[in-house]
């Protein structure tokens, strides 16, 4: 009997440590803990050009991640890119004149949505819209403009 109880204990320890390992991966390694869909609200922003933004790209304010992009679609009437943002419910005090811009993390990094809070007293509500947006900077366009400009100056 002694033998079987030690075996039970060891099997129990093994299963427990395996589950702890998987739990560690889920909570500590992945983004599961930092953000979940339940306690969040949706706002929409329209961009002239959303560039290389992707679903799951981060949404941040003042450099802190506060949400993620959940869908990007093309509006065939206004020819705009409609981006849905899921914002963590904790951050429910964004003014309704918040500006959304698409930035690039580093020169070659991922693109993300940056929210710049305005000065309004009213807060953005669930399913609210961000009116003021700034499109993604397209590198090729920027370089083209820069070259064009410097050519003009030389004349």
């Amino acid at each position: 009997m002694q033998h079987t109880t030690t075996q039970d204990t060891l099997v129990g320890l093994f299963v427990a440590s395996g589950i702890v390992g998987l739990f560690f991966l889920a909570m500590h390694v992945s983004n599961l803990s930092s953000f979940s869909d339940q306690d969040s609200y949706v706002i929409t922003a329209r961009f002239e050009n959303s560039g290389g933004l992707k679903v799951k790209s981060p949404v941040s304010a003042a450099g802190v991640k506060i949400g993620k992009v959940t869908s990007i679609s093309f509006d065939p009437k206004t020819y705009e890119s409609v981006v849905q943002l899921n914002i963590d419910a904790k951050y429910n005090t964004l003014p309704d004149d918040t500006t959304a811009s698409i930035f690039t993390a580093g020169l070659l990094g991922e693109q993300y949505v940056n929210l710049e809070p305005g000065g309004s007293e009213e807060y953005l509500k669930s399913n609210g819209k961000i009116e003021i947006t700034q499109s993604a900077i397209i590198l090729e366009k920027a370089i083209g403009q820069f070259l064009f400009k410097s050519a003009e100056e030389k004349k």
């Binding site: 093994f14 440590s17 395996g18 589950i19 390992g21 998987l22 560690f24 991966l25 390694v29």
Partner: peptide, 10 residues
């Protein structure tokens, strides 16, 4: 799966 989870975690 338990062993693989342990392997990655460790």
């Amino acid at each position: 799966p338990l062993l693989a989870g342990l392997f990655s975690a460790v």
